[in-house]
């Protein structure tokens, strides 16, 4: 693996260094970022947490960084030794049930006429894709998924809905996503999943993580209700890569 993608340092705050990779997002960059993140957390003293963007890592220390050039040197050394220190964490693939019918698919008919694709074609295009989880942001448990079929690209609503129901599966611009909780939002709703994306009672509140992959499969309303009663995400883990 090429782990020599160049990155830059930016001191954002006395406790924070932002690392940025100057290229378009790719699964290769993502793999390196998640691998690097795991190693920083493992080997860097005093780092309290790291958040991921498409092409950046925000590294936060517990205290003010006293020796910036040392901190920088340590990060560079860690990065160049990535493949020596460890192998990337295993990623998982999740197959989530989605009901694309009736009340759950508020905007499917509208999308179908605007995109000039039948509802079934939209469902097929949407569910057959294998999406990559880049990171979680916007809302607790909101997955940034990459891989939406370009035939389904559609601009966001000009006036966002005030309430989008929990579990709504939606399309906005070049992205698709699942609303983990009721919230306002400007994306077009095409279905709903009965699986909770964010549950604070679980040890890890969101089952998916950066680098995992995910696909959808269509279920009818009866099946949806059945799955909702059990609501066990682990049942939808298909394979560990």
């Amino acid at each position: 693996m090429n782990n020599k993608l160049p990155f830059t340092f930016f001191r954002m705050h006395p406790k924070v260094i932002l690392l940025e990779w100057e290229q378009d997002p790719s699964t290769e960059t993502l793999k390196e970022l998640t691998h690097f993140k795991a190693n920083i957390l493992k080997y860097s003293m005093g780092v309290s947490q790291i958040t991921l963007g498409y092409c950046s890592l925000l590294v936060q220390w517990k205290e003010d960084i006293i020796n910036y050039s040392d901190a920088k040197k340590n990060l560079i050394a860690l990065y160049s030794n990535l493949s020596i220190n460890s192998t990337p964490a295993k990623t998982k693939h999740w197959t989530l049930p989605v009901c694309y019918e009736g009340e759950f698919a508020l905007d499917l008919a509208h999308l179908s006429s605007e995109l000039k694709l039948s509802k079934d074609t939209i469902i097929e295009l949407h569910s057959k894709t294998i999406y990559t989880v880049y990171f979680i942001g916007f809302l607790p448990g909101f997955l940034y998924l990459d891989g939406l079929d370009s035939k389904l690209f559609f601009p966001r609503k000009k006036n966002p809905r005030l309430v989008i129901p929990k579990g709504a599966v939606a399309i906005g611009g070049k992205q698709t996503g699942i609303y983990p909780n009721e919230s306002p939002g400007g994306w077009h709703i095409i279905g709903n999943t009965p699986i909770s994306l964010f549950n604070t009672k679980n040890e890890t509140p969101c089952f998916a993580k950066s680098g995992d992959t995910l696909s959808f499969y269509a279920v009818d309303e009866a099946e949806y209700q059945k799955i909702q009663c059990v609501n066990n995400p682990k049942a939808y883990l298909t394979k560990v890569k």
Binding site: S48, Q49, I50, T51, L52, F135, I136, G137, F138, L139, P140, G141, F142, P180, F198, T204, P205, C206, K209, S210
Partner: peptide
Amino acid sequence: RLGSQSFGVP
């Protein structure tokens, strides 16, 4: 809530 930002938690 430091440490849960990877799950999108403010």
